[in-house]
Nucleic acid binder design. Structure first.
Lengths: 134, 134
DNA sequence: CAGTATCCTCATGGATACTG
DNA sequence: CAGTATCCATGAGGATACTG
């Protein structure tokens, strides 16, 4: 049977309940693995395992789930070649490319400003432990 | 005791384990409530409860946690006035404003393309149920 | 290789009650 | 009002085994 994939509970890792579709899409795009997948695919198409290695520390399950969600939202194109062994290429659709560009903006910003963030944390933590009173 | 906040386990909702700081920051910014907080604060400063109402469907706990994480990362400024009843204003730092702009880009894109995404989903679902075989 | 199907864990995150 | 502290449910996400 070809139904649910993923555990049978909580299908596409929506938050489950009723939520405005807007937030839902936003959460797919900003989801932990969604972000990374989109960024990788911005470079070039990837095969499943390639993608898995490129991202690192992602389980097959979560990658599959993420890719399915993004495919369903029309952001990722899945091209399964009917060969043995199977070969499946994932790439961005035009829509997906737009989304990915936005996400990349965020990622680039993060890299650029990482130092400042880390610095801010030290200040914050120092201040906290300074005013610590048991 | 002023220690842990949040349950005592899993302090700032990092993924817990060792992860490159880059991803960590990215996840704070793209976190479910982080995204929404940043976008709201882009308009103007907000008080705690105001923010809570503006976002809707967020528990005090998660809002507190999100705000603390963002404050620690130097993205949000917390201004606690020593009055009774307490009044705390949250606003973006310069760093936070930059991040928020990026996030807003994503949010705006989502709103603009929501229709296309929803449409893509219908196609996807229709195709799936078409090739359903028990 | 590219998934599926399960089982299982534990953090995410909500509800509630309490405090300064 | 703005948090803190707890208790708890459940869904995100990992590990493993199996299939086409």
């Amino acid at each position: 049977m070809a139904v649910s994939t993923v555990d049978s509970k909580a299908a596409q890792y929506d938050t489950g309940e009723a939520m405005c579709p807007y937030r839902l899409v936003l959460e797919h795009v900003t989801s932990r693995w969604g972000v990374l997948v989109l960024i990788e695919l911005l470079d070039r198409p990837y095969r499943f395992s390639e993608l898995r290695r490129a991202i690192g520390r992602v389980s097959e399950k979560m990658l599959t789930q993420t890719l399915q969600t993004l495919e369903r939202d029309g952001l990722v194109h899945r091209d399964a070649k009917p060969v043995i062994p199977p070969r499946v290429d994932y790439s961005l659709t035009d829509l997906g490319r737009e989304a990915a560009e936005q996400v990349r903006g965020l990622a680039v910003w993060t890299q650029e400003r990482l130092g400042e963030v880390l610095e801010a944390r030290e200040v914050y933590d120092a201040r906290k432990s300074g005013s610590e009173q048991e």
